[in-house]
Design a protein around this nucleic acid. Structure first.
Lengths: 344, 344
DNA sequence: CTGAAAGCGCTTACAG
DNA sequence: CTGAAAGCGCTTACAG
């Protein structure tokens, strides 16, 4: 295998030292204009491409950030990655991706890999099964900037970027109330995960603010799937006093609700309102289309990188000033909840 | 910032040389068992995490592969990335992601970044606007293994992983014929992109094989969008002899067809058949659900990595034995084309 | 079985 | 304005 051109190849060609070549290429102010020109020309002629590995080793900066996610096979994370990489690349960073597949061991391995690669910073969304946070404390101990997004740890002092899920759920529920639905049920997700818990709380708070008594028969805990939406709907419909609307904690569940209601010939939105969460791609294209809460995923990626970049530039991470960025949820009103027409 | 533990920190602690420590940690056969044990224990005690940057520089191997794609904000590429990273991580590789956003300049920049990072191999899906391939020839000249998937260059000698789009389109069209549709139209994509051209050819070939004469009024070139599907459908419906089925070159176009047919109160699949391509997430959840061709995206990612890994392990890249892996398309029959019931 | 030494390709403080 | 030298943290051919 032919070796790449190095600084000293250029230096030899021009009868100068590698130090001068290095300085010329990085536009050091003390290098003469003519030298710079000669060096750059020769570099191009010899097809020089600087070895970033070598400069990283020397300078202690890799210009690489690590991104650790549960999976890339998912519109949510795909969009966040897009937000991160676009901005990262504009700032001269490369992005190392590691998927943990909701597996704790792989998450630990990913962090270890990032440390080994001496990345300048790390962005993480937690695996569903992570209960032990030692690997993240290790990152902190090594003073490597780390930002969590979306799935963030409850009780650790790291900067985070999250959606205001509570507010999103509140808006969703309020919207259903405003449209005239009277008995609004909720299909929640696993409540030990903070975002689903917040969505549940937002739902409860909106009911209370409107003086609607809580009814525990209208609450179901699902597992974030179409089938779970169907199952919950079946149970709701058998109640003595069934609901006339369902706020589902995410769109696949809402889709299950839709399917089950259609099987039962219940008209949406006239007789029954449905609202999801996430604004997953398909929710716009079902019949009827599903009202939902958009999470601004692209923005979430951007904000995560911006926060990380700030930490990298400011050097040390002060625990005293942990920043939390909160992304605004956006209510997307579609057919499935438009009982009284489009709100202003 | 506290410095990381290095090999020589361990060496000093144990009164030996860094060389011995290095060998002990990599289980070199000539190192005594007791030394290995002591070294490993001390490494753990001092929280040693080897600097991969340094070892890469020395060994000339980074254990990093670069993946260059148009965008991560897209189910297709997300799934391919998933296939790549999962396998890569199992083989001890990290994955560097670069998105080019269909922009030629960013594509070139991505390749340059990968070369600078001295990645061990590169996996690429071309940007839509790439006409000049010099940056890839540069990669070849440097003997860096490179595999293209899905959007591959026409006339360059690189290994590729592609779907057999011709066959997928043929199957799709044959299925519509088998279901009893008589006048089958096609909405194509940009024909200068190979995969859309192949889909078009597969459509034509299936018609010919069934002795169905080609009718140029039944052919429309779109731009891969819902609107383009609607527009084409509108035009088809105004023909003196309108089609009774449409094979669309991808699912968003098919969705547009669906929407326009519904506006016109045309019953699907009884009066009119619809079939898409890609098996995008939403196509399963529309009403009616859309029949389509699945591309086995996850497999495509895996195959790309496997091919790249072979090239990395075999050292040099012989132009004489360029491998082309072809992924089988899978016909997914759903409601939109089931005029005569489910085929066996 | 272990050590001494060189070197991967850069960058930068120190001289001149 | 440019050079000589050291060093980032590893690995490995050569000695012993």
């Amino acid at each position: 295998m032919k070796k790449s051109t190095t600084l000293s190849d250029i230096a030899i060609e021009l009868n100068m030292t590698a130090a001068t070549v290095s300085r010329a290429l990085s536009d050091h102010p003390e290098i003469s204009k003519s030298t710079k020109e000669k060096v750059k020309e020769t570099a191009k002629k010899l097809n020089y491409n600087p070895n970033r590995i070598a400069s990283s080793l020397r300078s202690g900066k890799t210009n690489v950030v690590g991104v650790l996610i549960p999976t890339a096979e998912n519109a949510f994370f795909g969009s966040v990655i897009h937000g991160i990489t676009k901005l990262a690349s504009k700032h001269g960073y490369s992005v190392l991706i590691h998927e943990c597949d909701e597996d704790y061991e792989l998450e630990v391995k990913g962090i270890q890999t990032f440390i080994g690669a001496r990345v300048d910073g790390i962005i993480v969304s937690l695996s569903r099964n992570t209960l032990n946070y030692d690997h993240f404390l290790e990152v902190q101990k090594r003073n490597i900037p780390l930002v969590f997004f979306d799935r963030v740890p409850d009780d650790l002092s790291f900067p985070t970027v999250v959606l205001d899920a509570y507010r999103g759920a509140y808006q969703a529920t309020q919207h259903l109330i405003d449209q005239g639905y009277k008995r609004i049920a909720h299909i929640a997700g696993p409540l030990f995960i903070k975002t689903f818990n917040d969505r549940y709380k937002g739902y409860v708070a909106a009911l209370q603010a409107n003086k609607i008594p809580l009814d525990h028969t209208l609450m179901h805990i699902g597992d974030l799937s179409i089938e779970s939406g169907r199952e919950a709907t079946r149970q709701f419909l058998q109640l003595a006093e069934p609901p006339d609307a369902i706020f589902a904690t995410e769109d696949f569940t809402a889709l299950g609700v839709l399917k089950e209601l259609k099987v039962n010939k219940i008209r949406i939105p006239e007789q029954f309102g449905v609202l999801g969460f996430c604004n997953d791609v398909f929710s716009e294209h079902t019949t009827p289309s599903i009202s939902t809460i958009d999470q601004q995923t692209y923005l979430m990626g951007r904000e995560s990188f911006i926060m990380l970049n700030n930490m990298i530039e400011n050097g040390s991470v002060k625990t005293s000033e942990i920043v939390k960025t909160v992304i605004d949820p956006i209510l997307i009103v579609r057919e499935s909840s438009m009982k009284s027409g489009n709100p202003a």
